[in-house]
Amino acid sequence: MSRNHVVRAAGLLSAAGAVAAAVVALLPHFIHSRHASARTGAGRLASAAADTSNGSPPPADPGTLSASEAATLHLVPASVHRRGRFVASSGKPFGVYVGTRSDNGRQCVMLVGGGGMGAGCDPTMFSNGPVAFLEAFSGGPGKRKRTDFELAGVVADNVARLEVTDSLGRVTRIDTSTNKGFFFELKPGDLARGVDVNTLVARDAVGTTIASFDASEPGG
């Protein structure tokens, strides 16, 4: 191999080395950027759905249905209405929403907050009676391991109030006259004792029982 060949090879090796060094140097940036992007992935979904002008993800607003959450259920935007905003004893905000799916026409009640969004969808809002509701909880599966428990939903127009009876026989009255949305939670001390909700009773304005729901759950 001539001296020129050696010099040229050395030059090419240096160039390749520089490229390799650049790749090594930039790799953490790409990995970090990808991870950072991944963290805002849902925000990107929200951004795309909300068509924000600057392309940056909107700030998360706990207790408020985001565009990505509405999109994942294929909700008709005009059908989405908030029926109540509530603050739990922990200080966490929750929102109760209703909406109609665009793909199958089912009507959904949604609870947003507490680390997630839950929904129950039926052919009509009150397919199972004059109360459409969801139970949401974190922790478990054992009831004593739950760290929070919410029962929320909407009631039909003829329901004026609800009565929630827990597994200790205590009754909590909930006024549903405003926006027909409601929210109930079990307190941390009760959760630690494994207290659960037993029944949910809907009454009209004069106190007549309209419907009663067995909300008890099998297992401990």
């Binding site: 963290r39 805002t40 992935g41 849902a42 925000g43 929200a46 998360a60 706990p62 985001s66 990505s68 959450e69 994942t72 259920l73 089912r106 959904c108 009640v109 609870l111 947003v112 907050g113 507490g114 680390g115 997630g116 969004m117 839950g118 929904a119 129950g120 969808c121 039926d122 052919p123 397919s127 199972n128 459409a132 509701f133 969801l134 139970e135 949401a136 909880f137 974190s138 922790g139 478990g140 599966p141 391991k145 729901f213 759950e217």
Partner: peptide, 21 residues
């Protein structure tokens, strides 16, 4: 550990968790 759970009598029950929530 069950991070987030939903229970309902609805035909379709959903739980959705994202970095937003």
């Amino acid at each position: 550990s069950w991070r987030r759970s939903m229970r309902s009598t609805a035909v379709n029950v959903y739980a959705y968790v994202s970095p937003d929530t």
